[in-house]
């Protein structure tokens, strides 16, 4: 019998549940890619993946470390360009779900990956948007994967790289952006929201995590309903899929393999 899923593994399965059969999904590498692959090999066999570097509808081999890793380019429909994917698919409106990460997510689901202010008041430079702004500007559903740390959940991002609900209900429309729903998945909980709400609400907790555990690690208070669901364990077959097929060397779960993450 397999060990039950850790909360970081559960995050992958919970992300996979956000992908429906036949949808077009844009993913980078890491946990979002694993989530899309879990979906593809379980409940959503006809999910179509696209990768910003130009890879259209590939079969993925274990275990890509980059959006240009050749392991991500197996048997695709096309190997094209960044313009084709971020322009011809994402901005064109052909993508259903976008997966992102970020350094900060705020109360209104805005995402920062450009710079943060350090404890010394100095700006700490981060990589920047990449395709994230494009994805958050044009996709109708966004799934954001985050490590749940207090510094990563400020009331307001130091810099809005990728638009969530901006200043609140109606703000996306006023800015010229289409409506969007957002799911933020962390190792502690699931947060959700859409344009009409204009802010995030606590939708579910990871097993063994309390509402207070979540709130203690955030600088804002999300909407908290009376009853909050608990994320369920995946079937053992799906755990085996993740651990033995999709990421056999545990590249994305170094804690499970007793490794330390490189670089």
């Amino acid at each position: 019998m397999s060990e039950p899923a850790t909360n970081r593994e559960l995050l992958v399965f919970e992300a996979a549940r956000r992908v429906h059969d036949g949808e077009c999904v844009i993913v980078g590498t890491g946990l979002p890619l694993l989530a899309a692959l879990v979906a593809q090999r379980t409940h959503a066999p006809r999910v179509q993946l696209i990768i910003e570097s130009g890879v259209v509808f590939p079969t993925v081999l274990p275990t890509p470390m980059s959006v240009v890793d050749p392991r991500l380019m197996h048997a695709p429909s096309r190997l094209g360009s960044l313009l084709e994917v971020l322009g011809g698919f994402v901005q064109r409106g052909l993508v259903d779900v976008g997966f992102l990460g970020g350094a900060q997510v705020d109360e209104r689901a805005n995402i920062n990956s450009t710079w943060v202010e350090g404890d010394d008041g100095k700006r700490r430079r981060l990589p920047g948007s990449g395709g994230a702004n494009d994805i958050a500007s044009s996709c109708r559903r966004l799934v954001v994967l985050m490590s749940h740390e207090r510094r990563r959940f400020p009331a307001r991002c130091d810099f809005v790289t990728s638009p969530g609900f901006l200043s609140g209900p109606g703000a996306r429309r006023a800015a010229g952006l289409p409506p969007m729903s957002v799911t933020v998945l962390t190792d502690l909980c699931v947060l959700e929201g859409d344009d009409d709400e204009g802010r995030l609400r606590l939708a579910a907790l990871m097993p063994g995590v309390s509402v207070d555990d979540v709130l203690d690690r955030m600088q804002f208070v999300p909407v908290v309903p009376e009853d909050v669901a608990v994320v369920s364990q995946p079937p053992a077959s799906q755990l085996d899929l993740l651990r033995e097929v999709l990421d056999p060397d545990r590249r994305y779960f170094p804690e499970a393999a007793g490794m330390t993450e490189k670089a």
């Binding site: 313009l83 990449g130 702004n133 494009d134 790289t161 703000a171 800015a175």
Partner: peptide
């Protein structure tokens, strides 16, 4: 963003002075 940089190159490649995008809005 990645799209706005490649869109700027696209404008340059077409001999256009500028080109619109739907990225960056609101950010």
């Amino acid at each position: 963003s990645h799209l706005t940089m490649v869109t700027r190159f696209l404008a340059g490649s077409l001999g256009l002075p500028f080109i619109p995008t739907l990225s960056l809005l609101g950010s």
